[in-house]
């Protein structure tokens, strides 16, 4: 476990492929991480493009796994990596979770979305939470929201996960810098240097376009 890890979550549409690959990589690296989906339901490829497998959020990966291997198209699911994906997922956490009802999970310092649509959805939902909840004794907390755009397939999820891990590591290492070692404290303030970190990372990862903003919980 990384000491002094940021509280991180990864977000994609169905909380199965991209966010789960990144979740696994971050978890394996020792970060404090959770993951969510912003879709209305968990949608996985089905026998044909107009017949997806749809599950409610909260359906255990185990159940989805069993459902898929019991179907006639099992061979197809094995070939396109679906079975492998669910097998991975059920070893990471029990079930896909929905972003919009994740208040039980607490607050995060860093949210990484894997698609522009998900970034918009998270930012929009955080805006809604700004005025819809009213706990007078609570204070809002800053959250950095970064989108790393990843194509929704096995191979890209893997590459995207690597990119995300690199980015999180850069941010984590930045936070370990000591105040006393610099002349201008601004140099070690994350909010002041986030643009430089993202730019540096983006230069190395031009295939993973980014978005970024600060919101509050």
């Amino acid at each position: 476990m990384v000491t002094d890890s940021l509280k991180i979550c990864t977000v994609c549409a169905s909380n199965n492929n991209r966010s789960m690959e990144a979740h696994k990589q971050l978890k394996d690296a020792g970060y404090d991480v959770k993951s969510f989906g912003t879709g209305s339901a968990v949608r996985l490829p089905g026998p044909s493009i107009d017949k997806p497998n749809v599950y409610e959020f909260g359906t255990p990966y185990e159940d989805i796994y069993n459902d898929l291997i019991s179907q006639n198209c099992r061979k197809m699911y094995e070939a396109n990596g679906l079975i492998h994906m669910l097998d991975r997922n059920r070893h990471v956490k029990p079930a896909p979770e929905k972003w919009h009802s994740n208040s039980y999970a607490g607050k995060f310092d860093l949210v990484i979305t894997c698609e522009e649509r998900c970034f918009d959805s998270v930012m929009d939902d955080l805006m809604f939470r700004m005025y819809s909840r009213n706990d007078e004794s609570d204070v809002k907390q800053i959250v950095h929201v970064i989108n790393v755009d990843i194509k929704d397939d096995n191979e890209n999820a893997l590459l995207g996960g690597k990119g995300i891990l690199k980015l999180v590591t850069m941010i984590h290492e930045f936070r370990q810098k000591k105040k006393d070692a610099v002349e201008d404290e601004s140099d070690v303030i994350l909010e002041d240097q986030m643009m430089s970190i993202l730019t540096e990372w983006q230069k190395e990862n031009t295939h993973l376009p980014t978005l970024y903003g600060i919101s509050y919980y």
């Binding site: 930012m123 955080l126 700004m130 909010e191 986030m194 970024y212 903003g213 600060i214 919101s215 509050y216």
Partner: peptide
């Protein structure tokens, strides 16, 4: 960007 997005989020 961090400051502008923070302000926009509060403007809602």
């Amino acid at each position: 960007p961090p400051l502008l997005s923070a302000i926009l989020n509060h403007c809602v």
